[in-house]
Amino acid sequence: MPQRSPQTILLTGATSAIGAALVTVYARPGVTLHLHGRNRSKLDAIVQSAQTQGATVTQRSFDVRDSATLRAWVADCEKIGPLDLVISNAGMNINTGPDESGEAWEEAEALMAVNLHASRVLVDAVLPAMRARNAGQIALMSSLAGYFGLPVTPSYCASKAAIKAYGEALRGWLGKEGIGISVIMPGYVDSVMCQEMPGPKPFLMQPSRAAALIRQGLARNKARISFPFPLNFGTWWLAVLPAAISVWIVGLMGYNGHHD
């Protein structure tokens, strides 16, 4: 079953704002962290900090779109010991551009490969061992943008909506086998990726606070870890209301496709 205090954790996207903050909240003596990040120098610094906190750390730097390498990394980590918690956090974002010309197809394909396909590969790689021992926990990084699509980031919203549905389906399937599945749905968390996204950013949260909420939610094996509450409540309603009303509300909020 999911553990309140996992001892072995695998995390992709450890060099992102949320990823680095998650390393900080989980690193302590007795914990083994298997960390992935594309930025090798930043990953080195994060690893050193986690080791200073007393954690045992391994690290790999590669493109998660390389499915064979991703699977091989999981296998190498499992040789060290069973994975208690796997957090699929690697992600990217694109937008329709300052002139609203639209998303570049190659970038949209890369986004889907990173945000969606790599998460599915990771799940497929870790599930056999977890199912064999009827234990383990998987966290998938979605977003409040998965409730209703924003005009400025169509592909990002699509990928996060897909992750949300995928995680919810996995939970219904695997819960009876003792495997916890949680979908993480943050709002705006201060980061380079967030700042590069067009449009307003209400209730902007610091990564340390987001990581603390994620850890609390995973310890409780929550199906959906969504925050902050006001934005979660509002975006949930966007999914419930008739689409025409939701589109109108989104436009009023400033998500109208214009990059002012």
Rank of each mutant, 00 (worst) to 15 (best):
S5N: 15
P6L: 11
S16H: 04
V23R: 10
P29S: 01
P29N: 01
G30H: 08
V31R: 14
T32Y: 09
T32Q: 13
L35F: 00
S41P: 06
I46M: 11
I46G: 08
Q53A: 15
G54R: 01
S67Y: 12
A68L: 14
A75G: 10
L83H: 01
E109F: 11
A118E: 05
A118W: 02
V121W: 10
L127I: 03
G136C: 07
Q137I: 06
Q137L: 02
I138L: 07
I138Y: 05
S142E: 09
L144I: 11
Y147P: 08
G149E: 03
V152L: 12
V152P: 09
S155C: 11
C157L: 09
S159I: 09
A169V: 13
R171C: 03
G172K: 09
G180W: 06
G180N: 00
V183H: 04
I184E: 00
P186V: 12
Y188C: 12
D190P: 03
Q195R: 15
P198V: 00
P198F: 07
P202A: 08
F203C: 06
M205C: 12
Q206I: 13
P207K: 03
L218F: 01
R220E: 10
N221E: 01
F227V: 07
P228I: 01
F229N: 12
W236E: 06
V240W: 00
G251P: 04
G257A: 08
